[in-house]
Design a protein around this nucleic acid. Sequence first.
DNA 1: GAAGTAACCTACTAGCAGTAAGATGGACTT
DNA 2: AAGTCCATCTTACTGCTAGTAGGTTACTTC
Lengths: 217, 217
Amino acid sequence: MSTTAKAPTRRKRMPRAERERQMIEVAEAVFAERGYTAASMDEIAERVGVSKPMLYEYFHSKEGLLLACIRQSRAALREVTEEAVAQAASAEDAMRRGLRAFFVFIREHREAWSLLRHEMALIGTSAADEIEATRQQQTDLISNLLGALVGESDPIRAEASAEFVVGACERLAIWCERHEDITPEIVTEYAMDLLWGGLAQRATKIDTARPEHHSPR
Amino acid sequence: MSTTAKAPTRRKRMPRAERERQMIEVAEAVFAERGYTAASMDEIAERVGVSKPMLYEYFHSKEGLLLACIRQSRAALREVTEEAVAQAASAEDAMRRGLRAFFVFIREHREAWSLLRHEMALIGTSAADEIEATRQQQTDLISNLLGALVGESDPIRAEASAEFVVGACERLAIWCERHEDITPEIVTEYAMDLLWGGLAQRATKIDTARPEHHSPR
DNA sequence: GAAGTAACCTACTAGCAGTAAGATGGACTT
DNA sequence: AAGTCCATCTTACTGCTAGTAGGTTACTTC
């Protein structure tokens, strides 16, 4: 076949940094496409146009390669959200811009998002820690934003609130994938509404006697 | 070695159903312990005290075995939450009891929960669908509860709200794992507070959100 | 106690992660 | 222009694991 995707072009040698970027790019695609387990190092090597030991030269192991992909995605997500937050005029605006940047990111970088979202059978491995670190990054960011908005005196409660926000948004992001017509702007507003007002804001029957529990502060 | 865990007892033959339960039990432990990828069918077979082809006789493949484990966990979670909700006196009480049952479950069945939580490198496989189905189950349940509590006219918004709740609670559950002192009761109240009142309830600065500039240094 | 069958095993194949040891090409000197 | 160096890259392997073919054993039934 003359139309084969594998061009018979002379494989060019490349400087280390460039080859590394190329490998990560291909690996990200293959991992997202086949899943970590089903992806084979042979296939990744072939798609890059290089032999398998090169992958091991650069990333030491299959998990090392995955790790590099995750770090890359995490850095991209961090950059995008921090930039968005920095442009905000107020604390509430910061939250809104941050959420919006997140939802835009996961729409435009499906493969990267797929890597971050799927936990990949890696219990007890360093890659699992890496993914958890990504969530921690998000949680810290939210925590800072909440600190500016909500005067939460109990640090444990503040932590729980941040986790709550991260989990809710992560789930909303996955939900978005199934709804092409939901734009990042729309889902951002949904999130802001639910986060701020809670469900009570939209409740019709709730006003009847909540069982008393300690009033906050 | 007289103290070996593998007793030299004559391996007893068992009826199919019993052997099946035993295999699922062991597999659940091994998957949770090592992760799906690192777990080996040989080890599972050995721990059960049976040869590998037996596992394939019963579950057809490694993924089939995982699937059986997930189905088992899902059924258990469903049973527990539905039972809790059924005992409720009001819609709000149903939500509280459901949440509490969930948090208790994930504390008492760490291995099962671990299976449901980790998505296990299974993009595009039936096991991934199965895990998603578990979340769908939770989402449907929440959806029903919300229907009784909140008069949401927009069905899309109702769906988003349910996802929001599921995601937030899932994340809170993971957070709980790191805090031995947080009981299911406490986290249930956190969740109820945040879900109902939202963050606004606890906000001190939200109404006075002045465009205070976060100076870059 | 012979026959039938459900439960079980030994012994293999194929394919993937990971490695050892050597080949190649380009840059830089002289 | 020719020689030297070394980063880049390759071929050819090992060991381990998912999955299978075909035979064996113990329990039940008549």
